[in-house]
Design a protein around this nucleic acid. Structure first.
Ligand SMILES: [Mn+2]
Ligand SMILES: [Mn+2]
Ligand SMILES: [Mn+2]
Ligand SMILES: [Mn+2]
Lengths: 142, 142
DNA sequence: ACCAATATGTAGCCTGTGCTACAATTTGGT
DNA sequence: ACCAAATTGTAGCACAGGCTACATATTGGT
């Protein structure tokens, strides 16, 4: 009942965002693989993420538990509608973050690298501001 | 021996950054408490972070293992020179991230919130770009 | 058709980061 | 000086997300 300090509230939200991060990256990656290759195999997911296939399979299990993905034994992974919606949101946001970083003057490779972590900590308000900033920037120097 | 894909390298670096994040937040917070209150007690650290005191004490143990902090039984926590250096780096970076977000048009409260997560994924190249962007921005609209 | 290579899945381990419950110590008010 | 409250510390649990080792299934080349 004593007011949670605003700092504690912020840290709590940051922890919550972090807990979502891995699911977001998996959803985005699975959607990419499905679009590019027509299938998303655990081994490919693992190689792209730089983790062992056992780790990937375990996390795919979490995606399934949370209703984001489906798969049958020895078949590839697919996204549920919720998973696809998440992937779309995440892909859009990822690209916007990269674009804003580059617009600010961050070198492309650093922008790609840092966006991979930053993207998970962008609130809706920040997303709107990024979008508006990009439009203004593109309009100001065409 | 086969080239690690660039995507895998990025994800790996993001994981490494995440593993550092908690230490950075603790160092920053302990330095703040020491500066403000003259002491950094586990209970205060816990309350500011919004976690139980047991959790805070365990993480303080990790800071000590990694040479960032010291403490004696039933006394407050102090930073080693390495811990102070980290705290300074993190505080500067945190403020810069907030300033850049606000300059871009992010509302202040969202900027404070999102910076808490974003700050841990800012590479040196991005830090330089942020700094340059802020100078240009401040210079362009004084 | 078969066998080897590949892919998938399982088991079990570790660490980090949360928690609650309980124990021990210190502190402060009377 | 003493007792109660606050603080600190410990024990033990859960879960996420890494790993290796091993088991099982599928695939493809001969
Ligand atoms: Mn990411
Ligand atoms: Mn991404
Ligand atoms: Mn932070
Ligand atoms: Mn911070």
């Amino acid at each position: 009942m004593p007011a949670e300090t605003s700092q504690a509230r912020r840290f709590g939200k940051t922890r919550a965002a972090q807990a979502q991060a891995l699911l977001e990256d998996y959803a985005e990656l699975i959607a990419d693989l499905l679009a590019c290759d027509g299938e998303a195999r655990p081994t490919d997911i693992a190689r792209r993420l730089g983790v062992s296939h056992a780790t990937a399979i375990k996390t795919i299990g979490r995606l399934k538990r949370e209703g984001l993905a489906t798969s049958l034994p020895y078949r590839g992974v697919f996204l549920t509608p919720a998973g696809e919606a998440l992937a779309n949101k995440v892909r859009t946001r990822h690209r916007l973050v990269v674009a804003v970083l580059i617009a600010i003057g961050v070198p492309a490779e650093a922008a790609e690298q840092d966006a991979e972590g930053i993207e998970h900590h962008i609130s809706p308000a920040t997303l709107r501001a990024f979008s508006a900033f990009l439009k203004q920037y593109a309009g100001g120097a065409p």
